[in-house]
Lab assay of single mutants.
Amino acid sequence: MTFKAIINGKTLKGETTTEAVDAATAEKVFKQYFNDNGLDGEWTYDDATKTFTVTE
């Protein structure tokens, strides 16, 4: 399945996608990506659209 992340950061904005077997796996991938890029913020997840949003 394809999962999307919308990034609303102070220094980084945009979208990225990942292929994962479930939402928990996708969340781990996205959180690692955000940690690697120095992002920290509020997380939400919309199961209907398979979209994570992080707002810094």
Rank of each mutant, 00 (worst) to 15 (best):
M1L: 12
T2W: 14
T2M: 13
T2F: 11
F3W: 03
F3K: 05
F3P: 05
F3R: 05
K4T: 13
K4I: 13
A5P: 03
I6C: 09
I6E: 04
I6M: 06
I6Q: 06
I6W: 03
I6N: 03
I7T: 04
N8L: 14
N8Y: 12
N8W: 11
K10Q: 08
K10M: 10
T11L: 11
T11P: 06
L12R: 09
L12I: 11
L12W: 14
L12V: 12
L12M: 12
L12C: 15
K13W: 14
K13A: 08
K13S: 11
K13Q: 10
K13F: 12
K13M: 11
G14P: 03
G14L: 15
E15V: 13
E15H: 08
E15W: 14
E15L: 11
E15K: 06
T16M: 15
T16W: 15
T16A: 14
T16H: 14
T17K: 06
T17L: 10
T17I: 10
T17E: 07
T17W: 13
T18F: 15
T18H: 04
T18C: 14
E19C: 15
E19Q: 14
A20C: 07
A20D: 00
A20W: 02
V21N: 09
D22A: 01
D22W: 00
D22L: 01
A23N: 02
A23P: 06
A24P: 05
A24R: 08
A24L: 11
T25G: 05
T25P: 01
A26V: 00
A26D: 00
E27S: 03
E27D: 02
K28F: 08
K28G: 07
K28E: 08
V29E: 05
V29A: 08
V29T: 10
V29W: 15
V29S: 05
V29K: 09
F30K: 00
K31Q: 07
Q32T: 08
Q32P: 00
Q32N: 07
Y33C: 12
F34V: 13
F34A: 14
F34Y: 07
N35C: 13
N35P: 03
N35T: 13
N37V: 14
N37C: 15
G38Q: 07
L39V: 12
D40K: 13
D40C: 13
D40Q: 13
D40N: 12
G41W: 15
G41K: 04
G41I: 08
G41Y: 15
G41F: 15
E42K: 08
E42R: 07
W43M: 07
T44P: 00
T44E: 11
T44I: 08
Y45R: 00
Y45A: 00
Y45T: 01
D46E: 07
D46F: 01
D46C: 07
D46A: 00
D47R: 05
D47F: 06
D47W: 06
T49H: 04
T49I: 05
T49N: 06
T49Y: 04
T49G: 02
T49R: 05
K50V: 02
K50Q: 09
T51F: 01
T51A: 03
F52H: 01
F52I: 01
F52M: 01
F52P: 01
F52G: 01
F52S: 01
T53G: 02
T53A: 05
T53D: 02
T53H: 09
T53P: 00
V54W: 15
T55F: 08
T55R: 03
E56D: 08
E56V: 14
